[in-house]
Design a protein around this nucleic acid. Sequence first.
DNA 1: TACTAAGTTGTAATCATTACACATTAATTA
DNA 2: TAATTAATGTGTAATGATTACAACTTAGTA
Lengths: 164, 164
Amino acid sequence: MCNDYNLVTNINFEYLLIAWLVNLMRPSFDELKKELNMRNINLSYQRLKVLEYLTQNQCHPTVDHIFTDLHKDIPTLSKTTVYNTLRILVEVGLVRVVTIEDNETRYDIITENHGHFKCESCGTIYNFSMDIDSLTSEDLDNFKIKDKDVYFKGLCPKCLSKYK
Amino acid sequence: MCNDYNLVTNINFEYLLIAWLVNLMRPSFDELKKELNMRNINLSYQRLKVLEYLTQNQCHPTVDHIFTDLHKDIPTLSKTTVYNTLRILVEVGLVRVVTIEDNETRYDIITENHGHFKCESCGTIYNFSMDIDSLTSEDLDNFKIKDKDVYFKGLCPKCLSKYK
DNA sequence: TACTAAGTTGTAATCATTACACATTAATTA
DNA sequence: TAATTAATGTGTAATGATTACAACTTAGTA
Ligand SMILES: [Mn+2]
Ligand SMILES: [Mn+2]
Ligand SMILES: [Zn+2]
Ligand SMILES: [Zn+2]
């Protein structure tokens, strides 16, 4: 459905190495299943397929992307089930919501902190590394911060090269 | 409709001073009108009222907030007009969109860079100062960045004190 | 097997936003 | 000024994402 290499925007050894390391540190599919088990969440066939889809399509798919693609293999699948499954996965913290633009909720299996860049021309959402954990503001001294999101918008290299 | 002092979350001299300076630097209502004139955008009564509302209610109102409040004074106002006006104001850069949560597009007359914090308990969206312009990532060397948004979520001091 | 709870499905309801046709107002020209 | 044209506003219908809900199916248990 999409290529999943958008973390690696500059193709060189350094970035390939980082991408490889990041992937190594990510929980495996089996570990995700174990995590769900620990929280007493039954992994039905439909839920498994949604989780599998997210691990294989890390391009921040919408509900419609997930449903449309899975529906080809599982003709009985209901969109409601996709919604329900995603809600559960978000609740237990295995999936994060990306709301970089209104009217298109997207889902991300990578919950480790990273930034998101949306290209205004082609619509692709790129990941980028950033030490978001260390972002802070004096104004928020008395606030309890639970989530931090960094969203950039503009033009990606592919689209920039088109207009030269 | 809302108090507009949420930029100042720590009430002390330093922050009051910063808030005052920020306000001084902000374009005045007359300057906003001038800006629209320069761009050949006619400021009708309805558009003027929406702009005025945004300058007086800096709490990131939704379309519904704006419409409901203005409708009391202007019974003939149409919600479509509010939508149209906001689209124009965003296009010319006088207003920014805040999409910290899906299904509730909010509008902000303050276009200077600052972060947004949404309290998960009371729903209030607070501004906080942060040098967002200087945020960057090596991964984006070849990208053209046009917009940067920083969104935090958690609990605000008011709500935290309730649960003690 | 009968019972129960969890999970899935399809449809209807909701809500924000957009599309569009028509009405009104402002600006321009004869 | 009156007629014409363009810009703006209005109300309703259409769209699309999400949620609510009731019926159906499956898995587990006695
Ligand atoms: Mn991501
Ligand atoms: Mn703001
Ligand atoms: Zn692009
Ligand atoms: Zn609060």
